[in-house]
Amino acid sequence: MAVIDDIKAMLGLTEDTTQLSTIVTLTESRLKALLGVDVVPQELEYIEVEIAVRRYNRIGSEGATSHSVEGESWSFKDNDFADFADDIQAWRDKQANESKGRIRFL
């Protein structure tokens, strides 16, 4: 299932929206920059989905770090990717270990 389809399923949406497409594009771009890749690896697409859902749910509350009304309160992190820092680092470590090779001259 494509990332956009996973996000729509989690949000209960049936159609793409411009907002959703923009959120997915920006989230994907940021994740690619953090990973140093041109394409988000399939095993890390869940990060893209989770963060896009969070960002979609915050529409209208951008920039707020906390919100409280009649006993209900919300607080938002400054860095959406902070919860996934360990996963991102583990992936990067794995890539570094896999890319090490040997060259032998005969």
Results as ranks from 00 to 15, higher is better:
67 H>Y: 13
104 R>S: 14
29 S>W: 01
27 T>L: 01
2 A>Q: 14
52 A>S: 10
59 I>G: 07
71 G>P: 04
46 Y>V: 04
59 I>H: 02
41 P>F: 06
104 R>Y: 15
105 F>C: 01
27 T>I: 03
23 I>L: 01
49 V>R: 05
19 Q>H: 10
78 D>I: 12
84 F>T: 02
89 Q>E: 10
99 S>Q: 08
37 V>I: 09
51 I>L: 07
46 Y>A: 07
51 I>N: 03
87 D>C: 03
75 S>N: 15
74 W>F: 15
75 S>L: 10
24 V>A: 05
67 H>S: 12
68 S>W: 00
71 G>M: 02
30 R>I: 08
26 L>P: 04
39 V>D: 12
45 E>P: 09
33 A>C: 02
66 S>D: 08
81 F>Q: 03
18 T>E: 14
12 G>I: 04
94 K>E: 12
88 I>S: 00
71 G>W: 02
12 G>E: 13
57 N>Q: 07
3 V>I: 15
84 F>H: 10
51 I>H: 09
3 V>N: 03
90 A>F: 05
15 E>V: 07
106 L>M: 06
37 V>A: 02
92 R>V: 08
96 A>V: 05
37 V>H: 00
89 Q>L: 00
32 K>F: 00
18 T>F: 12
13 L>I: 11
15 E>F: 04
94 K>C: 10
78 D>E: 15
28 E>F: 00
82 A>N: 12
40 V>E: 09
10 M>A: 11
34 L>M: 08
93 D>C: 03
63 G>E: 08
79 N>E: 13
43 E>C: 08
6 D>W: 10
8 K>C: 11
45 E>D: 14
80 D>A: 02
85 A>R: 04
97 N>Q: 12
47 I>R: 09
41 P>C: 06
26 L>C: 02
93 D>A: 04
31 L>S: 02
104 R>W: 13
81 F>T: 03
88 I>E: 03
100 K>G: 04
7 I>M: 03
44 L>P: 03
14 T>Q: 13
90 A>M: 07
98 E>K: 14
25 T>Q: 01
47 I>T: 08
21 S>W: 02
67 H>W: 13
59 I>W: 05
61 S>H: 13
40 V>M: 09
63 G>H: 09
27 T>D: 01
64 A>F: 15
38 D>L: 12
48 E>K: 00
85 A>M: 08
52 A>L: 05
56 Y>E: 10
103 I>H: 14
105 F>A: 08
84 F>G: 06
23 I>S: 00
54 R>T: 14
62 E>P: 07
95 Q>N: 10
4 I>Q: 06
46 Y>L: 05
38 D>F: 03
86 D>E: 15
79 N>T: 09
71 G>V: 03
45 E>S: 12
50 E>D: 13
55 R>Y: 01
29 S>N: 05
13 L>V: 06
96 A>C: 04
79 N>K: 04
16 D>T: 10
42 Q>D: 13
50 E>G: 05
49 V>K: 09
88 I>K: 02
5 D>S: 09
75 S>R: 13
76 F>W: 15
14 T>K: 14
55 R>W: 04
85 A>I: 07
53 V>C: 14
106 L>G: 14
91 W>R: 00
24 V>E: 08
87 D>T: 02
1 M>S: 15
67 H>G: 07
69 V>E: 11
